[in-house]
């Protein structure tokens, strides 16, 4: 099932957000317009704007107001992807050349900075100081998470806490902020919008763990990059962390580098699949999902709750 079917009742509003996104990145500079459009049209699930809209449905839902938050969050996500591709020296994203590959790093830096500035411009239509405090803290923490990811590369002595803190910053907090800010934009009462944060956080953690599992289990075609890419780049994700507990696997994993061949990586992945590391990783992802669903049960009942529940379950079950 496609995830978009889970919130089909929001179709018109999602299309409106999509048009706003295109409007947001339009520019007097033809090169900038091309680069930004290039990224926008590469697609994406738009999960953050969806969370904004769904959370806003629990309050005073006014699309003209809520769209500013939805657009801002998706633009922030887009800006971070442009810069991430420079950091990772990535040639492709979603099967399309990255901005840095199509143009160069300089263009990618300017494009990312432009998109981020546009995100803040949209966000300043929300005259709510707390919303800005939440989002700005999220931005700073996101950067710290990315910096720590580089710091932790090839660090095989790191522990579970290091990993969880890293993915919290890298992924979960932006999803958490999406939910919370959607609720705030719809004037959801105090106390309640913090629950949206917790829901988004737990879904985000599950999402990233699932992503990290898929890096080992999905095919190259599904991933758009070779399987085991995280490990090849020195990123010690949850399955690898668990695998390091096994002496034989530990020895193999610590040898992995840019020189590692596809066959060597395939053998490591095969050994990991034979062990319990992937099941343990899935179990942790499920724990976060269960926490998210428990929090969801505490929210007022309405039609939107079912969509949030279905999306959370989808996150946990997705294959790519």
């Amino acid at each position: 099932m496609k995830v978009t079917m889970l919130y089909s009742f929001l179709k018109a509003d999602i299309e409106y957000i999509e048009r706003e996104l295109e409007q947001a990145i339009s520019s007097s500079s033809p090169s900038l317009r091309d680069a930004s459009l290039h990224l926008l049209q590469a697609g994406g699930k738009r999960i953050r704007p969806v969370f904004v809209l769904l959370a806003a449905k629990f309050g005073d839902y006014r699309i003209e107001r809520v769209k500013n938050v939805a657009v801002a969050l998706e633009l922030i996500h887009m800006a971070s992807l442009v810069h991430d591709d420079v950091i990772d020296n990535a040639k492709l994203r979603r099967g399309q050349p990255t901005v840095k590959a199509e143009w160069d790093n300089r263009m990618a830096m300017y494009t990312g900075d432009y998109i981020f500035a546009r995100a803040l411009e949209y966000m300043t239509d929300i005259e709510n100081a707390e919303a800005h405090r939440i989002l700005s803290n999220t931005m700073v923490e996101l950067c710290i998470g990315e910096i720590n990811q580089i710091k932790d590369k090839y660090q095989y002595s790191q522990n579970l806490r290091d990993y969880l803190r890293r993915i919290k910053r890298k992924t979960a907090i932006l999803m958490a902020a999406s939910c919370q800010l959607g609720a705030l934009a719809a004037d959801v009462p105090d106390g309640l919008h913090q629950k949206f944060y917790q829901f988004g956080y737990n879904v985000g953690m599950a999402f990233q763990i699932t992503d990290d599992i898929l890096d080992f289990t999905a095919t190259e075609k599904e991933l758009g990059k070779p399987a085991g890419s995280d490990l090849l780049q020195g990123n010690v994700t949850l399955p690898a962390l668990y695998a390091l507990e096994d002496e034989r696997l530990r020895e193999q994993i610590m040898q992995v580098g840019e020189h590692t061949t596809k066959q060597e990586m395939a053998e490591i992945i095969h050994q990991m699949k034979r062990s319990d590391v992937l099941d343990r990783s899935r179990a942790l992802s499920q724990r976060y999902l269960r926490k998210a669903l428990v929090i969801l049960d505490e929210l007022p009942s309405n039609r939107t709750k079912k969509s949030l529940r279905d999306i959370a379950k989808f996150v946990g079950k997705r294959k790519y």
Partner: peptide
């Protein structure tokens, strides 16, 4: 790359802490 993003986040957070949305808007522009 990340340092630039981090400093950018800091400028936003510094202003957000005092609720100065006008300055955020102007500097973003």
């Amino acid at each position: 790359v990340l340092a630039g993003d981090y400093f950018s986040g800091l400028y936003y957070r510094t202003l957000a802490e005092t609720g100065n949305i006008d300055m955020i808007r102007s500097l973003s522009a």
